[in-house]
Amino acid sequence: MIQVTVNGKAHSFEAPLGIGALLSRLELSGKKIAVERNGEIVPKSAHAETLIRDGDQFEIVVAVGGG
């Protein structure tokens, strides 16, 4: 099991797990989102092949109403 933080909350997953699979576990597949890992953007094109690592900090964001 590896531990990662997603939007400030701890999650555990069985390794190996790609970011694409992570998004599907979090029920975010197909959503208009952006993913940042440890301060660096992971582009959509790289989600499938990028494996999550123990201790990764993810920020997953959406567009919301704002002025």
Binding site: V6, N7, G8, K9, L26, L28, K31, I33, A34, E59, I60, V61, V62, A63, V64, G65, G66, G67
Partner: peptide, 9 residues
């Protein structure tokens, strides 16, 4: 305009 915020997991 739109804002960028964490998604609710």
């Amino acid at each position: 305009t739109v804002a960028i915020r964490r998604t609710n997991i």
